[in-house]
Simulated assay, not measured.
Amino acid sequence: MVTKILSRGGPACGYLAVRFLIGMGLLVSLPLALLVVWLPDVRRGLVRLARFERSQAARYLGLPEAVGTWSFKRSLTLLGLPFVAVPELFVAVVAVVGAPAALASMALWKVDPGNVSLMGLGVDNWLEALTLGPLQVLVSLAVLGWGAPALARRHARVVYDVLAPNEAEQLSQRVEELTRSRAGAVDSHGAELRRIERDLHDGTQAQLVSLAMRIGIAKQMMAEDPDRAAKLLDDARDGAEQAMNELRGVLRTMYPPILSDRGLAGAVSALCARCPLPVELRLGELGHVPAAVEAAAYFVVAESLTNITKHSAAGHVDVLMERRGPELYLAITDDGIGGARVSAQSDQLGRGSGLHGMLHRVEAIDGRLELRSPIGGPTTVEVVLPCAS
Rank of each mutant, 00 (worst) to 15 (best):
G133T: 13
G147H: 03
V42E: 08
S140Y: 07
G147V: 12
S71P: 03
P31G: 13
A99T: 14
A58P: 09
V47C: 11
A156T: 10
P31R: 00
V47M: 11
A99H: 07
Y160D: 14
L32I: 15
S105E: 06
E53D: 07
L78I: 03
S29G: 02
P82T: 11
V143Y: 01
A150I: 04
F52S: 04
V123I: 15
L135G: 05
L108D: 12
A92M: 05
L118C: 10
Y60E: 06
A164S: 13
L27S: 05
A101S: 09
R157Q: 11
V28H: 01
A142C: 07
G62A: 15
E167Y: 04
F52H: 12
V96M: 11
S117E: 10
L118R: 02
L39A: 11
A58K: 03
S140P: 06
V93W: 11
A168G: 04
A92Y: 07
G120H: 00
L39G: 00
V37M: 11
V93M: 12
L151P: 04
V42Y: 07
L76Q: 13
L141M: 15
A101R: 13
L49E: 08
R43V: 12
G145E: 06
F52A: 14
N166W: 01
S140Q: 03
L78S: 04
V42P: 03
G122A: 03
G147E: 05
A92S: 09
A99P: 05
L141F: 13
S117I: 02
L79R: 00
L61W: 00
S117G: 10
A85I: 09
L89Q: 02
N115C: 10
T77D: 05
G23F: 07
F90R: 10
L108R: 13
V84A: 08
P82M: 04
D161T: 14
V93F: 13
F90E: 05
G23R: 06
G147P: 00
A33P: 00
L135S: 09
A85F: 11
R59A: 15
V159Q: 10
V158G: 06
F72H: 10
L138M: 13
P82H: 08
A107T: 08
G122E: 04
G68Y: 10
V97A: 14
